[in-house]
């Protein structure tokens, strides 16, 4: 465990807690893409299959349970909570995310570390996580100005993967045979997707204006 990875896990946790706070405090999920939340639930379930087979550390197990639990709770809230579900605006959340699932699964069938059930699903979850934010970014663009908590959610989510890239560089330099190419390349793609969002977030923060994304 290095400081970059720990910082990444903490910002990832913060992003999920910010989202839960927003939904719980405002009893509203306007501006949040249910499709992105569903993709994240699939990412965590597909990636943490080893939860009960490989014990790595208490920290690892607890964090996996928290991530799976929170992502399923958010999807449950947005789909079934009698108050929150009415604030979900499905006609702006129109990204066809099933194509993302299919594309990532096909890619995982061809590009993986080992051709085993767990490894293919792990690669699938890595690819899917890289693109899972797309429905949310499309929704932000469509709805123009959005509330701060949603923007902070995306911001922390981007920061988490940026920390992980520093973690992979650090581990590559310090551990002899550390090769995590699939996660590193997908992580770079993921962080690049956020880069333009960060740019507009920084510009709006500098001008102390509301976030304006190009249509």
């Amino acid at each position: 465990m290095n400081i970059f990875r720990f910082a990444g896990d903490m910002t990832h946790l913060i992003s999920i807690l910010v989202l839960l706070l927003k939904i719980y405090a405002t009893k509203s999920c306007s501006g949040i893409s249910l499709k992105t939340q569903e993709l994240y639930a699939i990412v965590f379930v597909a990636r943490y299959l080893d939860l009960f087979t490989d014990f790595i550390s208490v920290y690892n197990t607890v964090m996996k349970l928290v991530f799976i639990g929170c992502s399923l709770a958010i999807v449950w809230c947005m789909r079934l909570h009698r108050v929150v579900r009415r604030t979900y605006n499905k006609d702006v959340d129109t990204f066809r995310h099933y194509f993302l699932v299919l594309g990532c699964f096909l890619l995982a069938l061809f590009v993986h570390e080992k051709f085993t059930f767990q490894e293919v699903l792990w690669a699938f979850s890595i690819y899917l996580e890289a693109v899972a934010i797309l429905p949310q970014l499309v929704l932000l663009q469509r709805s123009g100005n959005v509330d701060n908590l949603t923007v902070q959610y995306v911001f922390f989510l981007g920061a988490y993967r940026a920390f992980y890239i520093l973690n992979w560089i650090y581990r590559y330099l310090t551990e002899p045979h550390f090769g995590r190419w699939i996660a590193s390349v997908a992580g770079l793609v993921q962080t690049a997707l956020y880069a333009d969002f960060f740019y507009y977030y920084f510009i709006s923060w500098k001008n102390n204006a509301k976030l304006q994304l190009p249509a």
């Binding site: 080893d50 790595i56 550390s57 920290y59 690892n60 996996k64 570390e113 973690n167 995590r180 996660a183």
Partner: peptide
């Protein structure tokens, strides 16, 4: 935690 093991990251 087992270091360098394949899937020790979240």
């Amino acid at each position: 935690e087992r270091n360098g093991s394949s899937k020790d990251e979240l």
